[in-house]
Amino acid sequence: MQAKTIRRWSFVHTWTSLICTLFLLLLAVTGLPLIFHHEIDHLLGDAPELKVLPADTPRLDLQQLVLNAQAHRPGEAMQYVGWDEDDRNGVIAIMAATAATEPNASHTFMLDARTGEVVEMPSANGGFMLTMLRLHVDLFAGLPGKLLLAFMGLLFVVAIISGGVLYAPFMRRLDFATVRHDKSRRLRWLDLHNLIGIVTLTWALVVGLTGVISALSDLVIAAWRNDSLTAMVAPYRDAPPLSELAPVSRVLDIAAEAAPGMQPDFIAFPGTRFSSEHHYAVFMKGSTHLTAHLLTPVLIDARTLAVTAVGERPWYMDAMGLSQPLHFGDYGGRPMQILWALLDVLTIIVLASGVYLWWVRRRAAVPAVEMTR
């Protein structure tokens, strides 16, 4: 590689890294507890606990659970009903002032499907873990914060690629994984910076790209609403507003018949951003680690309970669904969590050492410039 080309790549790597480093350090630090969010919730006592009942205890009718939720928060609108990943007896309810209220202003709690009792979920509505999540997702700034982090993620990807390009000519005269302990501190850190960077390169690219996709989730959902959802509910464009909703008792059975071999992930009630003003949208998922993150919406008329559409999944919704488990490493159990945490710590070292190397080089350059005057 020619010296001029190396200087260009070095310029790109230096400045893309410096611009995004502060934000990437924040994301890496906040992402570390999010990898173990279930464990931390239990440690802090924020994890919802259901009563221990006989395994054959029958579950209540879904409509009864909805009524219990509405009685718990009277005057609010039901937005979503879902199921706890660890215990299907835990029914998660999300309510807000109106169905269209934005997610950060909603209230999340759990219902015991067998007794109908309400169990609060502190970590879903405040506290340490929600603070970490909001800092990681949008910096408490909503869509502008997400777009800023998406841009920083793109710079991070460019920094990774440019660092990989520079690694080959840098290591031309050294064996792989060489750390020159007999040299200056700056050179030792440079060797470590390059070694850790090249070892974690693939993982960092995956996390960076999936982070960008996740940060653009609001735009992805808006595109789905304007494209797929609008087409599916077109016959209801001029329909009068609903005066009353049909009970949701049979909604899951209806959705299962429309999407055989799949199981429900959550129900979006009329008026939410995942549904229309006239439909229950039951989002169905597969049973494997991969297909469990690929959701198929079944639209059910909220007055007649007739299935009006089974949506096809656009590629960008699949990309968003797959990006989140890859980003947080929560699809492979405890070994994957530990691996993701170790790689996260190594990334923090790479980011911090990059700033250190730039600062040391900058300080060394100042006296040299003054001597030439």
Rank of each mutant, 00 (worst) to 15 (best):
R7E: 07
R8V: 13
W9G: 04
V12P: 03
L18S: 04
I19A: 12
L22A: 15
L26V: 14
V29I: 15
V29N: 06
L32I: 11
L34Q: 10
F36K: 13
D41H: 06
A47V: 00
K51D: 06
L53N: 08
T57E: 08
R59N: 06
R59Q: 14
Q63I: 01
Q64K: 12
Q64I: 09
Q64E: 12
L65P: 09
V66T: 09
L67F: 03
H72S: 11
P74Q: 12
P74V: 03
R88D: 04
N89K: 07
V91H: 01
I94T: 13
A105E: 12
T108V: 14
D112G: 05
G116F: 08
V118E: 02
M121H: 13
A124M: 15
F128A: 06
M132P: 09
M132N: 07
L133H: 07
R134A: 00
L135F: 15
L147W: 05
A150F: 10
A150E: 09
M152T: 13
L155K: 07
L155Y: 08
F156A: 14
V158T: 12
A159R: 05
R173M: 02
D175S: 09
D175V: 02
V179P: 01
D182I: 05
K183A: 14
S184D: 11
R186S: 03
L187H: 12
L187R: 15
R188W: 02
R188N: 02
L190K: 14
N194D: 12
N194A: 13
I196D: 14
I198T: 04
W203P: 04
A204T: 14
A204W: 05
L205N: 06
L209E: 00
V212L: 04
A215C: 12
S217H: 15
V220T: 11
W224N: 09
R225C: 03
S228P: 03
L229I: 06
A231M: 11
M232R: 09
V233L: 07
Y236C: 00
Y236T: 01
L242G: 05
E244Y: 03
P247C: 02
P247T: 05
V248M: 12
V248E: 05
S249D: 13
S249V: 05
R250K: 12
L252D: 01
D253W: 01
A256H: 11
A258H: 07
P260L: 03
P260C: 02
G261C: 01
M262G: 00
M262R: 14
F269L: 14
F269K: 12
T272C: 04
R273Y: 06
F274C: 01
H279K: 02
M284P: 08
K285E: 12
S287M: 08
T288K: 11
H289P: 15
A292W: 03
H293M: 01
I300P: 05
D301M: 11
L305R: 13
T308A: 01
V310L: 04
G311I: 06
Y316S: 04
Y316H: 13
L322H: 04
Q324G: 00
H327N: 08
H327F: 10
G332R: 09
R334L: 15
M336N: 10
A341Y: 02
D344I: 07
I348T: 08
G354E: 09
Y356G: 03
R361L: 06
R362L: 12
R362I: 02
M371H: 14
M371G: 11
R373A: 08
R373V: 11
